[in-house]
Simulated assay, not measured.
Amino acid sequence: MSMRLADRTALVTGATSNIGRAIAEAFAAEGAHVVVSGRSAERGREVVDGIRAAGGRADFVHADLDGSAAASRTLAGEATRVLGGRVDVLVNNAGIYPPGTTTDTDEETFDRVYAVNVKAPFFLTAALAPAMVRAGGGTVINLGSWIARLGVPVGALYSSTKGAVETLTRAWAAEFGARGVRVNAISPGVVQTPPPGEVHPAEVMMKGTPAGQMGTPEAIASAAVYLAGDESSFVHGTVLDVDGGRTAAAVIAA
């Protein structure tokens, strides 16, 4: 590896599986000291042990980001302590995706999804961005979604939260960019890792796209390394589509 993130610290939420885990592993491989955050201590320890076995630096910090400002502030404080007093890179990855349509969604579910997907990263960024400013700079990377801009007949609630996150990305870039904190987002396409020999039901959504297949968590992690590193120093307020061309090109099903 090129050690593009040497001497940097990073907090990755929802880092015990899938995209979050891949980002934490990629950051550590590039030299960052990473806080792996999530609800499962068992899975968190597994991720940390793997990173350390590969020669990287990582620690687990338990967090149940329920949308309350208190939970986000607690995580910010503990991550800052574990990382030696500063967080250089924040990745707002944690989120939940309940199935169902608009008419199937009750108020409790609505409030819970907005709490986890929008309120939690809002207050976590509010807690950490000012400290980044005082430290001379930092980076915030949000996770959006391709269905924030391309409607599908299910998942309206989730897609609306990701639309909010992508809007916050632009607003935060305007709010914090001039003070040294770059804010960008990644919009993943259909990302799944099915067992060998099996076809995931979501595969059909990538038929007819330029990529022609689902993406991997590692592809998203590579984009996150780019946005966290110096190569993207002139990139502010963008939503980077890493979706196999799903939103850019007309899909013509075979």
Rank of each mutant, 00 (worst) to 15 (best):
E203I: 10
A174C: 07
S40Q: 01
A131L: 13
D66G: 00
A178R: 13
G100K: 08
A223I: 11
G208K: 09
S159K: 01
D111N: 11
D106N: 15
G144P: 14
V89K: 01
A254F: 08
A174R: 12
P153Y: 00
G144W: 15
Y158E: 02
R149Y: 13
V35G: 10
F176H: 06
A221R: 09
F110T: 01
K162H: 10
R246Y: 14
G55Q: 10
T109S: 09
P201G: 13
L65M: 07
T105K: 00
R4E: 14
A32V: 06
D49N: 06
V181K: 00
L11Y: 05
A24F: 03
V251M: 11
V118H: 05
H236K: 06
E78G: 01
A164L: 10
V204C: 08
R112Y: 08
A79E: 03
V154A: 14
R112P: 03
L75A: 02
V183I: 05
V116Y: 06
S40H: 00
I220P: 03
G163L: 09
N18Q: 15
V165K: 05
S37H: 04
R57L: 09
A253V: 15
H236R: 14
S72M: 03
L168P: 02
M205V: 07
V82Q: 08
V82W: 07
L90I: 07
G215N: 08
A249L: 11
G138Q: 06
A6M: 11
K162P: 04
N142A: 04
A249M: 09
T105S: 07
S160G: 03
L168G: 00
V116H: 01
A127Y: 06
V140H: 14
P98G: 13
E25G: 10
G38Q: 02
A6T: 14
T103S: 09
D49H: 02
S222N: 15
S37M: 02
G44T: 01
G197H: 05
R246K: 12
L11K: 01
P210R: 14
L168R: 04
A171I: 05
Y114C: 00
V91W: 12
A135Y: 02
